[in-house]
């Protein structure tokens, strides 16, 4: 998958690669030309990545090469044991859950799992959770709280699955139940938006003590396409909607709905995943250290205060 914004960059890079091949044959010295092109690449990068629009970020956040929950787990945890099924009906592969070890600490991990290609995506239903997935997440959260394990949630979903069975099985109740649960748990919860934070389906595992977003991830109450359809009956105006909804990490940090933003290496997480894993791991270990020093029974009170304040309104007298 090639993003429109990175196409000129990728073209330049492949040209450099070609020249290098010619150079190593030893017949011609192209070092001057290569150097010039490399400078051009740097300039172009600066130009592209310092001016990303909200819509550009939507594309980066949805990139199918972007690391998924499973990739983070594999790269950052010294051990991980997957926990499957909701103990009621089914194992929803749109949600990955388990216990793992990071920085010497046992934690519960819950995340939306997207696929890398079409086949993989069909298996994981594009990371769109069903009630069974959210209820699996819920039972793992309960277990974590019982043993005092902190919970780490990786958010990466277009939204909750809009399917027939999902509605029959109470999609809305599954989401509401998790939100209520997460408000009350006596263990730290860290939520990390790694790609798409799609509305209720994201928020079903999104209530926590420390909310982190990767720089190019997005978090929104409605998809830009959905918003554009409602406002202008025209889904192609999604880029305008993306801007109006303030769904980027910097704007959400500014209004205080997000606590931390992790900068991505130039070009986005899909271009340098290893670097991203190490930054995310550093942040998680630091935040776990801080939150785990707070007594468990304080956590629901702190969370209450945190969410109690969210919202902007005006109160007129009389």
């Amino acid at each position: 998958m090639i993003l429109e914004i990175e196409r000129p960059l990728l073209e330049l890079e492949s040209k450099i690669e070609e020249l290098r091949k010619l150079s190593t044959d030893g017949r011609v010295d192209l070092s001057v030309e290569i150097k010039a092109l490399e400078q051009k690449v740097e300039d172009l990068k600066k130009d592209i990545y310092s001016n990303l629009s909200a819509w550009d970020k939507v594309q980066i956040a949805r990139h199918n090469g972007r690391p998924t929950t499973g990739d983070y787990v594999e790269a950052m945890f010294s051990d991980f044991f997957e926990l499957r099924g909701d103990r009621r009906a089914r194992n929803d592969l749109a949600i990955l859950a388990g216990i793992g070890v990071i920085g010497g600490r046992t934690v519960a991990v819950i995340g939306h799992q997207k696929g890398k290609n079409t086949k993989d995506n069909l298996k994981h239903n594009f990371g769109m959770g069903s009630p069974e997935g959210f209820r699996k997440a819920g039972r793992v959260m309960d277990m974590a709280a019982r043993f005092g394990f902190p919970i780490i949630c990786f958010i990466d979903t277009p939204g909750a699955y809009p399917g027939k069975e999902a509605e029959e099985k109470g999609q809305y109740e599954a989401i509401a139940g998790n939100i209520l649960k997460m408000m009350s748990l006596r263990t730290p919860i860290i939520c990390m938006v790694i790609g798409e934070g799609g509305s209720g389906g994201a928020f079903a595992i999104g209530v926590g003590d420390h909310i982190i977003m990767l720089e190019n991830s997005i978090y929104s109450v409605i998809s830009p396409e959905g918003c554009a359809t409602i406002l202008w009956r025209d889904a192609t105006r999604a880029s305008e909607a993306a801007k109006a909804l303030r769904i980027t990490s910097d704007s959400l940090l500014k209004i205080g709905l997000v606590d931390e933003v992790i900068p991505e290496p130039e070009g986005g997480a899909h271009r340098h995943p290893e670097e991203v894993f190490s930054r995310v791991k550093e942040s998680l270990i630091r935040n776990l250290g801080e939150l785990c020093s707070i007594p468990g029974e304080e956590m629901p009170k702190r969370r209450y205060e945190k969410y109690r304040k969210m919202g902007v309104f005006k109160e007129e007298n009389g």
């Binding site: 408000m183 109450v221 959400l252 969210m310 919202g311 902007v312």
Partner: peptide, 22 residues
């Protein structure tokens, strides 16, 4: 549902109201 024009503030109300239920 949530009020689109208030963006993420609206989504956060799901947690805020459930805090009241708690």
């Amino acid at each position: 549902g949530a009020r689109m024009q208030e963006g993420m503030y609206s989504l956060m109300q799901l947690a805020k109201t459930n805090a009241g239920v708690l």
